[in-house]
Simulated assay, not measured.
Amino acid sequence: MNEEMNNGGSVEKTPFYKKNWFVILLIIFIPPAGLIMMWVNKQFGKTARIVLTIVLAIYSIIWLTTLFTPKPTQTTQPEPTTQSQAQPSANVSATAAPTPEPAPAVPTEYKSALKKAKSYSDTMYMSKQGLYDQLTSEYGEKFSAEAAQYAVDNLDADYNYNALQKAKSYQETMAMSPEAIRDQLTSEYGEKFTQEEADYAIANLPQ
């Protein structure tokens, strides 16, 4: 009982701060003060006081740890700019499409050989082999073999047409037969046309 009898037999009221409900409120809202009052006034049984003391001690430790532990600050990483995002693709494009190297310059001798080959083809209707021999001959143009080969490889000539013009010349000026003309066109001592070019010329001679 929270109320006691005095010597005169009257009932003595218990102060409010010694009552169980007040001690419970202190324990809830002010744990240290409530704990002290519980032990000083011997509220509750001994076992209950020990259990409550342990629970409040653990609670206080957790509360103090949470209170004094600094909260981590969050840092926001800046997003990459559009320029930095576009830079790798520009580097890839530069790597994928290198600047082409300029073509090597054609030597002057090669150009001269090509001009001479064109002149012979347009006026004398020579074969490819005949042009090469004329360009490299010591009695002809005396170009180097490399210059002559460049000339005949890069000459835009219709050798079927050249063979036909030669065949007409032989037919008109020397009255040669088609077979004789064919032999003259393909002979290594004659015009040096290919067999196919000579066949084209004979097939297209005027009747």
Rank of each mutant, 00 (worst) to 15 (best):
Q129R: 05
Q207G: 14
E101D: 07
L164A: 15
K116T: 08
G130K: 03
N41V: 09
I50D: 05
S119A: 13
A157W: 01
M1H: 10
K142R: 11
A57F: 15
Y125I: 02
L56M: 15
S112P: 00
I36M: 14
K111M: 13
I30E: 03
F22W: 14
G45L: 05
A201R: 02
F16N: 03
P32V: 12
N6A: 11
E197I: 07
T53A: 14
E79D: 12
M174P: 00
T14C: 13
D133L: 13
M5N: 03
K118H: 07
P100T: 08
T194V: 10
V106I: 15
I50S: 10
Q171M: 10
T99V: 14
W21A: 14
E141N: 08
V51Q: 01
S121C: 04
L67K: 12
E146P: 01
Q77Y: 12
V11W: 11
E191N: 06
G140L: 03
E79P: 00
K46D: 06
K166H: 04
T82W: 03
L56A: 14
L155I: 15
E4R: 09
Q83M: 09
S112M: 10
N41E: 09
E79Y: 07
V40T: 12
P15E: 06
G9K: 02
A105I: 08
I27S: 06
Y170P: 02
I54K: 01
Q43R: 13
F16G: 02
M126L: 14
L26H: 02
Q171C: 02
Y170W: 07
G130D: 04
P31L: 05
I24W: 09
D156V: 10
G140F: 08
E4S: 07
T82Q: 13
D133Y: 06
D199K: 01
N160W: 02
S127F: 09
T186C: 03
M38P: 04
M5C: 03
V152I: 15
E172S: 13
K168M: 13
P32D: 10
M174D: 09
K192V: 09
Y125H: 14
E191L: 06
A90E: 15
Y59Q: 06
E196H: 04
I24Q: 11
M174T: 03
S187V: 08
R182P: 00
A203S: 15
S119Y: 09
